[in-house]
Design a protein around this nucleic acid. Structure first.
Lengths: 211, 211
DNA sequence: CCTGAGATGTGAACATCGAACACATAATTG
DNA sequence: CAATTATGTGTTCGATGTTCACATCTCAGG
């Protein structure tokens, strides 16, 4: 249908889509105005009708990447099955699930993860969009509500969880994990570390020793 | 002395120095061949006599930044005073010190920290240089030697400490710390989280409540 | 049904960037 | 002293983001 029309129709969203695809494959460096314009079947100057700047386009793509990350976490949390006999176990498993989803997103889509957090000290706060942070806050509130997390630990809990999970993601994305460690055990160690730091129970399927 | 000479003398180190200064002020984006050449009082093409590529120059500057970080950690560890009555306390305090030094380096020199870890999945391993990782390993071995860290926790310990400290650094550098948290308490929370995850003692001066 | 105004896309510029080349100059070595 | 190597210059090239005059489409109001 959209062939040979002088006007594109919805160039803005097409550019963002092309940007997301390019970022997934080549990271922030692949976000180039001329490439995205060509991929959208349009001349370079047309971009400026929808974005004041290449930086603004990149920022929007980065925001989309953060959204995709938050969605991955949310989906992982929803996939956790509740234990009817023990409400707290579900909350603990959800925290594990979102942490694991975060790191595995970084491992699965390293370039996109890099794009998500490429802003160099620009953003004054993270409060612009419903983000991974909010998903984490929700999970921690659940833990307090079910009595699994002591309220005195609630204040620092997001900082501990966020820094550990975000840090391990960055390590994996940059290929900075030294030998002989493997990504799989690194992820498990990080999740377990957060659990121990927050003094949470060990839910059955995440028991370290099984024998 | 070095005026109006056709040959610079030691252009390579001058370029690296200029690169480090530029990175400290403007981050990876400020590492531009022409600027560094001009700052070194030399024509752009001269750079290629000492580096095959701009990417190689940037990589060297990045390596220098990682070195500066490792030095900051090492110095912080050396500044810890031993307790003659309790050898273990010193080891615990050294772990705290190097973690704090890492994060505070990122806070003090965000652009340089960004430059230190700018490589996008390029490096296959981190084993190229005596790095922050080695300082961490040394501190953890000390903890085991003094009986403060249980040997069974030694294996995962570097992953836990590294991810948490590196992650909080990234959060602070990118200005991603949400309100109402302050950098100071975020740093304390991260250090305390690592300590709890590794089940270490609380050394006196880092006691949370003092009254 | 026009018709003109605003929205959207094009093409040809320009400045700047990393890079490549031939050439100039210094340092070193036999 | 001669010649080979090392190091720096000047010019040029392709690619990139950006701008501007112009072209084309859309659509509301006579």
């Amino acid at each position: 249908m959209p062939v040979d029309r002088y006007h594109h129709g919805n160039l803005r969203s097409t550019l963002l889509e092309a940007g997301l695809t390019a970022a997934r494959l080549g990271g922030p460096a692949a976000l180039q105005l001329r490439d995205l314009a060509t991929a959208s079947g349009v001349s370079p100057s047309a971009v400026y009708r929808h974005f004041p700047d290449m930086a603004h386009l990149s920022a929007e793509v980065s925001r989309s990447a953060r959204e995709a990350l938050a969605n991955a976490m949310q989906n992982a949390a929803k996939a956790v099955v509740e234990d009817p006999a023990d409400a707290g176990i579900g909350a603990i498993r959800r925290l594990h699930a979102i942490g694991r989803a975060y790191i595995e997103f970084a491992e699965r889509e390293p370039q996109l993860f890099d794009t998500a957090f490429m802003t160099a000290g620009a953003a004054p706060s993270c409060a612009d969009d419903p983000s991974a942070w909010d998903v984490l806050i929700g999970a921690l509130d659940d833990l307090v509500a079910t009595g699994e997390l002591h309220p005195s630990r609630r204040h620092d809990a997001p900082l501990i969880a966020w820094s550990a999970v975000h840090g391990m993601s960055g390590v994996l994305v940059r290929g900075m994990l030294p030998l002989p460690y493997l990504p799989e055990e690194a992820i498990n160690a990080t999740i377990a570390g957060v659990r121990d730091a927050l003094q949470l129970r060990h839910p059955p399927e995440y028991a370290v020793t099984r024998t």
